[in-house]
Design a protein around this nucleic acid. Sequence first.
DNA 1: ATCAAAAGTGGACATTGTCCACTAAATGAT
DNA 2: ATCATTTAGTGGACAATGTCCACTTTTGAT
Lengths: 150, 150
Amino acid sequence: MDKAMIADIRHFNRRYTNMIGVLNSHVLDSGYSFTEARVMIEIGMNEPCIANMLVDSLNIDRSYMSRIIRRLVKLGLLYKEASAEDQRVSLLRLTDAGKASYQDLDDRSNELIIRLFRALPPHELEEMHAAMQKIEQKLDQLERRDDDTI
Amino acid sequence: MDKAMIADIRHFNRRYTNMIGVLNSHVLDSGYSFTEARVMIEIGMNEPCIANMLVDSLNIDRSYMSRIIRRLVKLGLLYKEASAEDQRVSLLRLTDAGKASYQDLDDRSNELIIRLFRALPPHELEEMHAAMQKIEQKLDQLERRDDDTI
DNA sequence: ATCAAAAGTGGACATTGTCCACTAAATGAT
DNA sequence: ATCATTTAGTGGACAATGTCCACTTTTGAT
């Protein structure tokens, strides 16, 4: 891999990091902290969740996660359901209020994407989309190789 | 923009955010906090800097920036040079130690990129690179339009 | 039955980030 | 030239975020 390509990739990473930072800062207008939003989204997309799964998938400290969950429960957005098989874990689910809030978060996120890219003509948009798919495909390949070699 | 495309873009954003998070967590083994590293990189790439420029470009609170700079100065990585034209500002420059440290940061970042993508065959790598360039090009277009319309 | 590992919790603490008020210098209007 | 306004930077006080460690309960393996 030559110098120029590395520089380009890093440039892209910085640029994209900034863009996502802007997006996230808008999402945060919804009253969640960044981490709370991640937790809500993860649970919303993947219900029910187990705290420890979230710890792994979101890379958050165990005890911190415990507090985040406690807070979200106290806010009436989540509840814990006892697991039948393993009494150490609780199954985390969204309450109705939590679902509404998640839906709102989701809507705002969609809206933000639309606003961000609305100025791109359809063809340009499709090219960008294709480029994103291409990159994800490469990341998939990398992960598959990692599975082989580790 | 249809639902599926929005979902794909958001999926890409999440995925890429995670990847960058992993990259960053490795960069942070170098003793800097994430924000300190950003500041060092920005100054290293763009010397001399003015604190207020950094506040804008990195989106960091003024007073927080002031403290970060004070810390980096205390660590012997930065120094302030009085500006001739405007006596309110100082020009921030890397000391020799700062340059060495920046170089180290830079080397590690390059190394990380290489490691991350080393399993991709050259042709795949080139495709990914092209896809990144394509996306940046679209972001450029958006920014140019914003300039027009704002 | 015993023991190591896993899930979760809480205390204590460190780091990181934010808000506000303030000073000093520069800029602009009159 | 003077004075109000804006800009760059600083510090105090504080809030939010994240980390480390010790501990309890439960599970699973031997």
